[in-house]
Amino acid sequence: MNDSESVTTQISTVEDWTLALAESTGSPGGGAGTGVMLAIAASLTSMVAGYTEGGHAELADLHGRSRALRETALHLADEDAAASKAFGAAFRLAPGPEREDAIHRASVDAAKASAVLGERAIEAIEDLGWLAENGNPALIADVVVAFGALRAAIAGARTNVSFDLSSLTSAGADLEKVREDHPHLWETVNRLSKALDRIDELTASVDGKAAPTTAGS
C-alpha cells in the first residue's frame, strides 16, 4: 500500500508510511513527521522508565505520561497530515477571494495543529531530563536518542507554526496583523525556541555519560 490518501500512523506499516512520506504529495509531510518523531521520543522515554528501578511515584507517573504521549503523538501526526492536505489544496485554487479565504483558514488550522503538537513536546522535556539524571545509566544512549527525536519534533513544530503564520500574508494580512489576531500561536513560536535551548542544555549535561570526551578516558 503506497497511496498516501489511505496511509495513517494507526494502520500502516513503517514501510508504507515512510514510502508515502517520500512522495511529493505533502500529506503526510514534515508536520506529520514531527508527530512521529515525538512518538519515538515518548516511546524511548517509556522504555527507559520501564528499565529504571525504584518505587518513586514520580517514576510511575512519568512512565504513564510517556505511554499516553506516544498514542497522542501518532494521532496528532495524522491530524497534521490532514491539515497539510487542506493547506496544499488552498494554494492550488485560482486567484481571488475564495483562494484568499481558503489560504487563511488552512494556514490557521495548520498552525494550530503544529502548535498543539509542539506544546505536547514541550511537556515531555522535563520527564526526559529526569531520566537523564535518575534513569538506568545503561540506557543513557537511548536517552540521548530520545532527546534528538524530541528536539526534531520541537524544531519541526516551531518552523511549521512560524511558516503557517507567515503564509497568512499570502491572504492579504501583514505580519503585525497576524500577531494581533493570533497572539497564542505567535507566542508558541517563542516558547518552542526556548524549549530548543532547554533540550540542548539537557543533552550537553549527559554527553559525558554517553561517551568519553578524550581518548583513554
Rank of each mutant, 00 (worst) to 15 (best):
M1H: 12
D3P: 03
S4G: 03
V7M: 00
T8Q: 07
S12T: 06
E15G: 06
T18R: 04
L19N: 13
E23W: 05
S24W: 08
T25V: 15
G26L: 11
G26R: 09
S27T: 12
G30D: 07
A32H: 07
A32S: 15
T34L: 02
V36R: 01
V36Y: 05
L38H: 05
A41G: 11
A42P: 09
T45H: 04
S46M: 10
A49Y: 06
A49T: 10
E53A: 14
G64W: 00
G64M: 07
G64H: 04
G64V: 05
R65N: 12
R67W: 05
A73I: 05
A73V: 03
H75Y: 08
H75K: 14
A89Y: 00
R92G: 02
A94L: 09
G96N: 08
E98R: 10
D101I: 11
D101M: 11
R105P: 04
S107Q: 09
D109I: 04
A111T: 08
A111R: 07
S114R: 05
A115K: 05
L117H: 06
G118Q: 07
E119A: 12
G129I: 03
P137Y: 02
A141C: 06
V145N: 06
L150C: 03
A153L: 01
A155R: 14
A155F: 11
G156V: 05
G156L: 07
S162W: 12
L165H: 02
S167N: 12
L168N: 01
L168Y: 02
T169D: 00
T169R: 09
D174L: 04
L175Y: 14
E176A: 11
V178G: 01
E180D: 11
E180K: 09
D181F: 01
H184E: 15
H184Q: 14
E187D: 14
R191T: 11
I199E: 04
E201A: 07
V206Y: 05
K209G: 00
A211Y: 10
P212E: 10
